[in-house]
């Protein structure tokens, strides 16, 4: 094959290599710009990823919903319609197997159905918040300290929601971004 053809195929590959991360960015930016912001009460813990670095894993307060429908199976997709409580935090309005016709919703995954308590346990897809490697563990400690010092429910994740997808924008402790909160503690 002539080198020029090889080069043209290479140019196509270059475009594909740029397109994938660029598409990821554009999708996330679209959600941040046009989506609705919800606050999810959460508890952070500190694991790490070999390629992406340290992150805090967010254990949300909303992890289950009551349901008499016992046919839910593990790893099944679930659509969670959202509303806010009087303090402005996210709450589950309804759950369904189909996309809700109106309102904001998140596409999550069923972990398991508790037949005894008649509860569907599920996980939100936005449960990893990437942090500076020196701050991730301190963030977990700061959260524990903040729990002791102030009112409960003082840690939340700000998530932009659009068409079932969510972008985790930031995590706050006492309304201060968690990275800044950790810096202050130090």
């Amino acid at each position: 094959m002539k080198p020029i053809y090889i080069f043209l195929i290479f140019v196509l590959l270059v475009l594909a290599q740029i397109y994938i991360p660029a598409k990821m960015i554009l999708d996330q930016e679209a959600i941040i710009k046009t989506g609705t912001a919800y606050k999810f009460k959460t508890r952070p813990v500190d694991p790490s990823d070999p390629f992406k670095g340290k992150y805090i894993h967010l254990n949300y307060d909303i992890t289950s919903v009551l349901s008499n429908d016992s046919t839910w199976t593990n790893y099944e997709p679930i659509y969670i319609a959202l509303k806010t409580d009087t303090l402005g935090f996210a709450m589950v309005e309804t759950v369904s197997r189909d996309v809700p016709e109106s309102g904001d919703y998140v596409k999550a995954q069923v972990d398991w159905y508790n037949t005894y308590e008649k509860k569907i346990n599920f996980s939100f897809p936005f449960d990893e918040f990437y942090m500076n490697e020196l701050k991730a563990y301190n963030a977990e400690l700061a959260y524990l300290k903040a729990q002791q010092d102030s009112l409960p429910n003082n840690t939340y994740a700000l998530v932009y929601i659009l068409n079932g997808n969510g972008v985790l924008d930031n995590v706050f402790i006492n309304d201060i971004p968690i990275a800044k909160y950790v810096e202050k503690q130090e």
């Binding site: 990821m24 996330q28 992406k52 990437y130």
Partner: peptide
């Protein structure tokens, strides 16, 4: 470089990690 760019975009936007698909 391809691996690091996808990883970094995932990091910047907190895109949760499914290591296999990555």
């Amino acid at each position: 470089a391809v691996g690091s760019s996808i990883a970094l975009v995932s990091q910047i936007y907190n895109i949760p990690g499914d290591l296999s698909s990555y």
